[in-house]
Each structure stands twice: as C-alpha cells, then as structure tokens.
Amino acid sequence: MTQAPEELKPEWVTPGLLYLASSLCRDTGYILRASNGQFTATRFTENSGVSYPRDLARVQAGNFKEVAERWSRIKECHYVPVKVANTRADLGESPVWDARSGALYFVDITDGRINRLNPDGEVESLYESAARIGALALTDQGNLIFTEDSSVAILDVNARKVRQYSVPVHPRSTYRFNDGACDPQGRFVSGLMDEAPSGKTGALFRFDAELSDQVIHDGMALPNGLAWSEDGHSVYFVDSVARAIYRAVYLPEGRLTEVTLFAETPAELGRPDGIALDREGGLWVCQFNGSCLLRYDRHGHLTDQVVMPVTRPTSCCFGGEGMTTLYITTARFGMNAVELRHYPDAGDLYAIRPEIGGIARHAFKE
C-alpha cells in the first residue's frame, strides 16, 4: 500500500477494511472507515451510520488529505427537533408554509385530511375526504391544490369547499398520487404510485391551470419528494424504493432533460421521502424508517445528519420568519403496538432551526 501522508494515516487495517484518522477527523469525533469503495463516518466508539455511498470510488495515493477534508464536513448535527404539535397523524405528509397567513398546511394521507397549524399553535382540520390525500401546494389566490387518490383538486380555503376536479389519471384503486409541488411556471407536478406495488409503474404528472395532465417522467417505483432549485433550472425528485434522489434540467415548457443521480441514501438509514432545499443549494431529505434527516450539499455530498425522536419522518419544508425553520411531518403508519409504545409521539409535527435558511416554494397559477 502507498504510504499515506502525514495528514491522514491508517489507524489499523483488517482484511478488506481500512480505518483512517487525522487531526481533522479527531476534531469531529469521528474516524473514517473505508471498505469496498464505501466511506463511513464512524465514532471512535460506535458506528454513526453516516456514509458516503457514492462519493469516492477509492482512496488513491496522494489524495488522502482531500478525502479527510471532504469527510470531516460530515457531522451528526446537534440540532434538537422540537415538537410543534401533537398531531398523531397516521401518515403525515406534504407540509406547506403560507407566508401571508403565517400558517402551516399539511395532510394525513390515510385519514384523508388537510390540516392547518395556525399561528397560535392550534391545529384545525380544513377538509376531510374518504379518498387518500397525498400532495398539497398553495395557489396564487391563497387556495390549495391537492391530490385525492389519482385526481387533482382545488380547495377554496375560505369556503372550505372543492371547486375544481381533474379526471382520474388511472382506473385502478391501488394507484394514488404521493408527494408534489409547483414548478416555477405555476404548474402542479405530482408523482403517481401503486400501493400494490407493481414494479416501475410510477410517473411524474404535470397539471396546468385547467387541470389537464401530462406525464413528464416515468419508470419509477415509488415517486416521492419534489423540489426546484432557486433559479428554477433544476428539479430534484425522489424514488424511495431505489433509495435515489435525482436531479434534472427543467425546461420552461415543463419537460425534464439530463436526468442524473444526485445522491443514493444509505441503506441502513431507511428510505428517502420528502425533501426541501436551503439557500446554499443544500438538500434536506427525510429518511422514512431511518429516524433521521440528512442534508446533501449542492454537489450531492452528504454533510449532515439530524437524529429524530421518531422512526418515520416523512416530509419537510422551510417556513417561519425569514424561512429559517424546517418543519417536519412524521408517521405512525405501519407501526405495531410495541413500536408505538417505544415511540408514542410518532405522527407528530416537529421543527428544527438549521444554520442556513430555506427558499420559498412556487405557487400554482389558477
């Protein structure tokens, strides 16, 4: 093996496994574990579960310092998630911040509810349906566009009544829309999934002001979180089954080109779910069944891990004064009685205050 420079030297070696440490590493409380081209930030005494699944293929001679510097930025954050409301949602999802009213909207998919967290901290139900409500977004008129099973609808918030429906995009009852968001041109995009499941039959649909639909990307197993870059030129979207976050060029006419893998989340940390972007281009992702949120920088390098007090964070959005609060929905869905005894707060609404604030989401043009 090539001699490592002074900055980063092997601590000990076992067959197929290499541990590396430096002053940079020791400052963070972690060492670097390298195995089969994978890099894992590991505490001196315990595994942190923060990994580089795809950042560097091998530690080549002469770049040990580069590895250490890049790796040393990965840290288990000291942000403490604070409970915002005792919502006890079965499958809380799609939080949306309304800066005009200072309210936070979110849904409970399986209970078919659209809820609103008011500035006074009270939670009220705005709308209830026998259908599964998946995605939610604001309109430019202060209303809400949302999905019911495989249809899209617009809710008049003041009247609390639906005044426009799309036709269903799929005849089978197992199909429903999941997460969604609006593009920079004011159109609504949502991912259709099969709860059955049925392979890679999921797709992203775009809806215009008349709620006419068009498929803009297909071949997905479980479409999930969606977010646009601040300049609107890039869109990020999740396939939870693939544990993948993709980035694509988003053309003004609403087409995707140059779809590439932005990040593959660690297998030991559940599956990626909802996402939100901060002002530095960093991407926050909720790890369902992973008990954490992860942050990737604009290059797809893992930088932060926030441990949650519940196992199933589902989605997140920036809001609050100056867009400095990251709101996080969670779920009780699929948890058994023993798990619920250990995590009684599952399904509640949480928030953290990252060092970097977020960007506002686009509204639907009615």
Score class of each variant (00 low, 15 high):
Cys182Gln: 00
Gly180Thr: 06
Arg206Leu: 15
Val310Arg: 01
Gly219Asp: 10
Ala21Asp: 15
Ser125His: 12
Arg312Gln: 13
Arg54Asp: 10
Arg116Cys: 14
Leu136Asp: 03
Glu258Asp: 14
Asp208Cys: 04
Thr324Tyr: 06
Arg172Thr: 09
His342Met: 04
Leu126Gly: 06
Ala41Thr: 13
Pro10Asp: 09
Met220Asn: 09
Phe207Ala: 06
Glu128Gly: 11
Ser315Met: 04
Ala363Lys: 12
Pro223Ala: 00
Gly282Val: 03
His299Gly: 08
Gly290Leu: 05
Leu251His: 10
Asp140Val: 06
Ser23Ile: 07
Gly37Ile: 04
Asn143Pro: 02
Asp27Glu: 12
Asp345Cys: 09
Gly232Trp: 08
Ser315Val: 09
Thr174Cys: 04
Thr14Tyr: 13
Leu144Val: 02
Ala267Leu: 13
Glu6Gln: 14
Gln185Leu: 03
Pro5Val: 06
Glu321Lys: 13
Ala159Met: 12
His299Lys: 13
Ile359Gln: 08
Asn118Ser: 12
Glu355Ala: 10
Asp213Ser: 14
Leu277His: 04
Gly191Leu: 07
Gly290Ile: 06
Pro184Tyr: 05
Thr324Glu: 14
Thr265Asp: 08
Lys365Pro: 00
Ala263Gly: 01
Asn63Ile: 13
Gly37Asp: 05
Thr201Trp: 06
Val67Cys: 06
Thr329Asn: 00
Gln3Trp: 05
Asp231Arg: 11
Leu226Ser: 04
Cys316Phe: 03
Ala181Val: 04
Pro309Lys: 05
Ile216Gly: 01
Ala68Ser: 13
Ser48Asn: 11
Thr324Trp: 09
Glu366Val: 06
Asp273Glu: 03
Phe64Gln: 04
Ala130Thr: 08
Tyr236Gly: 05
Thr260Ile: 14
Asp179Arg: 02
Asn289Ser: 14
Phe64Ser: 08
Ala135Phe: 00
Leu269Ser: 12
Gly37Gln: 08
Leu256Gly: 06
Arg298Ile: 09
Gly191Lys: 00
Gly49Arg: 09
Leu349Ala: 00
Leu222Pro: 02
Ile275Arg: 02
Val285Glu: 04
Pro344Phe: 05
Arg54Leu: 12
Gly202Arg: 08
Asn118Cys: 11
Tyr79Met: 07
Thr257Glu: 11
Asp156Met: 09
Arg100Glu: 14
Ala57Thr: 14
Gly300His: 00
Val307Phe: 01
Met1His: 13
Ile114Lys: 10
Thr14Met: 15
Ile245Thr: 01
Val82Leu: 08
Pro184Trp: 08
Arg298Cys: 03
Asp90Trp: 15
Arg247Ala: 09
Val107Leu: 01
Lys65Asp: 11
Asn86Arg: 15
Thr303Asn: 12
Val13Trp: 09
Arg255Ile: 02
Glu355Thr: 15
Arg206Ile: 10
Asn115Tyr: 13
Tyr105Thr: 05
Ser94Ile: 00
Glu253Ile: 05
Asp108Phe: 08
Ala21Gly: 06
Ile109Asp: 11
Thr329Phe: 01
Leu8Glu: 00
Ser166Leu: 15
Leu226Glu: 00
Gly347Lys: 05
Leu326His: 02
Cys77Val: 07
Arg176Phe: 13
Val235Leu: 06
Val157Asn: 00
Leu261Asn: 03
Leu211Lys: 12
Gly334Gln: 10
Leu269Ala: 09
Leu251Trp: 07
Ile74Gly: 07
Phe237Asp: 10
Gly290Glu: 00
Cys77Asn: 11
Arg176Lys: 14
Asp156Tyr: 09
Asp111His: 14
Asn143Thr: 00
Ser22Gly: 12
Phe188Val: 02
Thr303Met: 10
Pro81Asn: 11
Ser150Ala: 12
Ala85Asn: 03
